[in-house]
Amino acid sequence: MQTAAALTMVRDDAFFLKAWLRHYGGLLGRQNCYIVNHGRGEIVSDLAQGCNVIGIPGDPHKNFDMKRWRMLNNVVMGLRCYYDHVIVGDVDELVVLDPVAGIDLPEFLKAIPPNRVLTPLGLEVIHRVELEPDRIEGRILGPRRHVRPAPHYSKPCVISAGTKIARGGHFTQYERLHTPDHLYLLHLKFCDLAAYSEAMDRRNVISAATGAGIKEAAIGRHWFAESRGNDRAVFEAFSALKMQDGFEMGPLRRRMHRTWKKRGETGYWEFDCPDFDTQYLLPERFSGLV
Rank of each mutant, 00 (worst) to 15 (best):
E175A: 14
E137Q: 14
I136N: 06
R144H: 13
A209N: 12
I159M: 02
G122T: 07
A195F: 03
A240M: 08
R254G: 04
H23I: 15
R203Y: 04
G102H: 15
L121R: 00
F238Q: 00
Y24T: 09
R30W: 04
R285C: 07
R135P: 02
F235C: 04
A111R: 15
V234F: 13
M77V: 04
A240P: 03
F235E: 01
A199F: 11
M9G: 12
Y268M: 08
I140Y: 06
L121V: 11
D245Q: 09
F238C: 09
G39M: 00
A161K: 12
R70E: 11
T163C: 13
L183K: 00
A194R: 12
K67R: 14
E137C: 12
R128H: 03
G58M: 08
C157M: 10
E124A: 08
G169M: 07
C273N: 08
R254Y: 05
K67Q: 11
K155F: 00
A19G: 10
Y280E: 05
R40P: 00
H152M: 15
L177Y: 02
A209G: 06
K164D: 12
V76G: 05
A5V: 03
L252N: 00
R148A: 01
L183S: 00
N63M: 02
D201K: 15
R145F: 07
W269P: 06
S239P: 03
P57Q: 15
V100I: 12
S207N: 01
L177F: 03
H170G: 11
E42H: 12
D192V: 01
R228W: 12
E124F: 11
V10F: 02
V125A: 02
I112T: 08
V44Q: 02
G169E: 05
D59V: 05
Q31V: 09
M9A: 14
N74V: 05
R68H: 06
L27F: 07
N204Y: 09
R128F: 00
G220P: 13
F190A: 08
I136W: 01
R258H: 11
L7Q: 00
G78D: 06
K62H: 09
D201C: 15
L193G: 04
G89C: 14
I35E: 01
I136L: 10
E248S: 12
D59N: 14
L7G: 00
I35R: 01
E248W: 11
G169Q: 05
G229H: 04
K215Q: 08
D272N: 11
I103A: 11
H152L: 12
D275C: 13
N52T: 08
L27M: 10
A6Q: 02
Y24E: 06
A212Y: 01
A166M: 06
D65T: 03
E236C: 10
G162Q: 15
M200W: 02
S154W: 05
E284W: 13
T163R: 10
D272S: 13
I165K: 05
L289H: 09
R80F: 08
E42A: 15
N230F: 01
S197D: 13
K18P: 01
H182K: 13
N230H: 10
A161Y: 05
